[in-house]
Amino acid sequence: MTVLGYYPGCSLSGAAREYDLSLRAVAARLETELREVPDWVCCGATSAHAIDHNAAFCLAADTLLKAHRAGLQHVLAPCAMCFSRLAAATRELRNNSSLARQVALGLGDEAPRLAQVQAINLLTWLEGFPAGVLEKHVVRPLKGLKVACYYGCLLLRPPRVTGAVQVEAPRKMEAIVARLGAQGVRWSMATECCGAGFSLTDKTVVLRQGRRIYGAARAAGADLMVLACPMCHSNLDMRQSEFAAGEAPLPVLYLTQLIGLAWGLSSEELGVRGHFVPVEPELSAALARG
């Protein structure tokens, strides 16, 4: 058993609980113990850094501190937003600006010590498994399945925070789905923002961006879409009936759910039944076609 710090964030404890479920199921089979950061606090999401740089930094730094005190060096943050906030805080702590020093002091620790904690996202975690490890669990090869891998914004951007190398035409998620037998299609909206942050406040944006993303995935011949962000998921799954009314449904899965399906885990275990766009009929049909 490998121990890995785990920061579920608010979404995975709420609307995106199927992400949490499927992640835990996958991690268990990868012999990884996800050890939750004790008493973690909300990362502050867009709202904190949008209006109060200091508050945003303090929130993220507090979680890093709690991870550090629990002896966790790497913390998996499956939500792209949480990952981005924690990674940005680590970067600021490493640059050890005067602000970082003050915040660390305010939290009762030192910036260089806090900076030892590194948030990692789902892709970084998964690609760390050597060839054969993800593959050996596959009982339902996804051969012929065409997948649109959707990265959105914060999984990769900005590279000075995320450390990503390919940010405009990334292929990391495609490499992972290929290990399940599926094929990641080349498509044009993989890194375009879906606008989910405005889901409540300016729905026109969400529908416009959702429509573009859906349309591009369809045009590229995708059978379904995978992603690693609860906000994107809620937008592209829940609102699909609005921005693509009357059109062919495009199931939207967390990457962990697709992995679980290829590994033969049950729909319940993966929380797949909670989706607005039904998954299983489309998946079976696509595999039959493939």
């Binding site: 606090v41 200091n54 929130l59 507090d62 602000l99 003050q102 305010g106």
Partner: peptide
């Protein structure tokens, strides 16, 4: 628990 966070923000 956010007491530590609030204190840090207040310090700033």
């Amino acid at each position: 628990d956010t007491r530590q966070v609030l204190k840090a923000i207040d310090d700033l």
